[in-house]
Each structure stands twice: as C-alpha cells, then as structure tokens.
C-alpha cells in the first residue's frame, strides 16, 4: 500500500510523552469545567425565567462538551509527531486538519525552549524554531525539559553546519 501523505518517510514519528497528553487533558478538563460550571450554576441557581428543561440541557451539554474536549486534547497530543532527519525537521500535527511542516536545518535562525508555570509543573517544555519567515509555524510542545534542551542544542548544531544564505 502506498504510504499516506502524513506517514513518516523513513522511520516512525517521534512522539510526545504520554505525560504531555495527560497534561493537555487535565488542562482541557479544568478549563471546560470552569466555564461549563459557571454556565450551569447560573442556570440552576439564579431565579431566571427559564423553561424547566433548559438547565438540564445545559448540564448535559457542558458535560458532553468537556468530555469531547478532553478526548480531543489527548488525541491531538498523541497525533503530534516530529522527526529529525538528516537535512530537515518534520512536524506533523492536527486532527481535523492535518499539517506536515518541513523546516530545513539551514533555514533555522534560532531555536527557543519555552515553558510556562503549568508546563514546569509537569516537567515539560516546548521547542520552537524560528526561520526568516513568520509563516513557518514550527514548534514542538510538551517535551520533557531535558529532552527539549537537548533537541534545541542538536538543532542549533545542525543548523550552524548547514546555514544557507537568505
């Protein structure tokens, strides 16, 4: 069978750690529960002139939406893949809209490791690549912190040895 457009060309995709999927799921759950909870609480507790079935409907919708978001968040994280090849870095991401981005090492201008308070809590960090074009959206979220630093160093070394002129 012919390989698909988003299959790894040579080996398997390097995936993000399961911890990152969990982190995304927890994050999605918290955010959705907060927003959904506010809506549901308003519908139940405030004396609004609403038909009796509406609070029930809202509750079901909020729970369903939260579940959906949590599942999708996890699946997004497991669908994310990257691959360090000899000359370029490939990134594949997305569920509905699949995206494959290829960034030649020679085009990289800088590589950043960034992490926020919540990400640090999970021991995760993101790596993003900067090229001369802001359209190239090349970032890998949620790597273990040491791995992110190592990846950055590998990428920079690879980029320096191949730097292409603008």
């Amino acid at each position: 069978m012919q390989p698909g457009l988003f299959d790894a060309p040579e080996l398997h995709w390097q995936r993000l750690p399961a911890r990152y999927a969990l982190a995304r799921m927890v994050n999605a759950a918290l955010v959705n529960l907060l927003v959904g909870g506010l809506v549901v609480a308003t519908a139940w507790l405030l004396p609004l002139p609403l038909p009796g079935w509406l609070p029930w409907l809202l509750t079901v919708a909020a729970v369903g939406w939260t579940l959906w978001r949590v599942v999708r968040a996890g699946r997004w994280a497991t669908a994310f893949g990257y691959l360090e090849r000899a000359e370029d870095l490939l990134i594949v991401r997305g569920l509905w809209t699949r995206e494959l981005a290829a960034i030649p090492y020679g085009r990289m201008q800088s590589v950043q490791v960034n992490t926020g308070p919540v990400q640090r809590l999970w021991g995760l960090a993101g790596v993003s690549l900067v090229t001369a074009s802001i359209q190239s959206n090349a970032s890998i979220p949620g790597l273990p912190h040491d791995e992110a630093t190592r990846l950055r160093d590998r990428l920079i070394t690879a980029g320096e040895s191949r730097a292409l002129p603008l």
Binding site: L5, F6, W96, T97, R98, E99, L100, A101, A102, I103, P104, R107, T131, A132, S133, Q135, S136, N137, A138
Partner: peptide, 10 residues
C-alpha cells in the same frame, strides 16, 4: 524557501 507545509482538511 524557508519552510514547506502540507495541509489537509477533512
């Protein structure tokens, strides 16, 4: 070319 991207929606 700085980078290449392939996109496929549903």
């Amino acid at each position: 070319v700085q980078s290449i991207q392939v996109q496929q929606g549903p």
